[in-house]
Design a protein around this nucleic acid. Sequence first.
DNA 1: TCTTTAAATCATAATGATTACGAATTACAT
DNA 2: ATGTAATTCGTAATCATTATGATTTAAAGA
Lengths: 137, 137
Amino acid sequence: MNIEKAINKLKEKGYKRTKQRKRILEIFAEQDQGYIPAKTMLKEIQKDFPGVSYDTIYRNLYLLADEHVLESTELEGEKHFRFHCDTHGHHHHFICTACGKTKAVEFCPMDKIRQSLDGYAVDDHKFEIYGKCPGCL
Amino acid sequence: MNIEKAINKLKEKGYKRTKQRKRILEIFAEQDQGYIPAKTMLKEIQKDFPGVSYDTIYRNLYLLADEHVLESTELEGEKHFRFHCDTHGHHHHFICTACGKTKAVEFCPMDKIRQSLDGYAVDDHKFEIYGKCPGCL
DNA sequence: TCTTTAAATCATAATGATTACGAATTACAT
DNA sequence: ATGTAATTCGTAATCATTATGATTTAAAGA
């Protein structure tokens, strides 16, 4: 996912290109596929747009997540967001708890265990690995 | 894990057997290995002890988790707790999002992917499957 | 049983993340 | 340039969780 693709996607749906929204996308691009908590996003945005409130942040983050521009997870009780990975198929992530950066893990455990859940309706699953990336070690 | 084992464990560490604490354990036992959110635990306890406050709930839940009597996870932004499973080795869970009940899944994906994380320090991982159990379908 | 004391609870307030809302502003199609 | 719906701003409300000081209680020992 990148900025131009995201903005086009929004334009198609009738959403406007605001400078705040553009800046949010830029910050995700600068973060290079890492997860960012909502609070950090607010602080970053406010360097350029001091008046921005949480309302703008969350409204945009959720909008972008609904449009599959972002994906989200919950780390230590805080929602984190990142650009949606659309270069691979379905996959999971190692997440560095120091910097938020991720590494794709292609293996999905559901392939191995689905047959053991006969009679159960599976709606979703979460597989995440937490630790320190080489750069943070 | 069961009530007597838990109470003995606490007694060894010098913790007291209070009626509120005992009731918390009973509620977990009644729940039959399902996850319970803190809020539900408060409501349940208050049927017997109307004066109980969140302080008592959280203090006890965290104490019990520290002592490995409970295990916890975060579902939809709320902390949930359950009796710690000590009948198997390391394993994961299917969690019914309707009733909180769980089914053990013996497979751990870390066995398959650890070698692909060379150079990364793995501290923790989470693998959970969400859906509806046969009883709730 | 009585006393002592640390542990635990109670009542309430503080914190922090998230959500909500009315008024004002802005993007953009016509 | 204008109209209109989308968006933002400023601020308040909500919700889960954590913290605190005063009071009560469990349990060990005399």
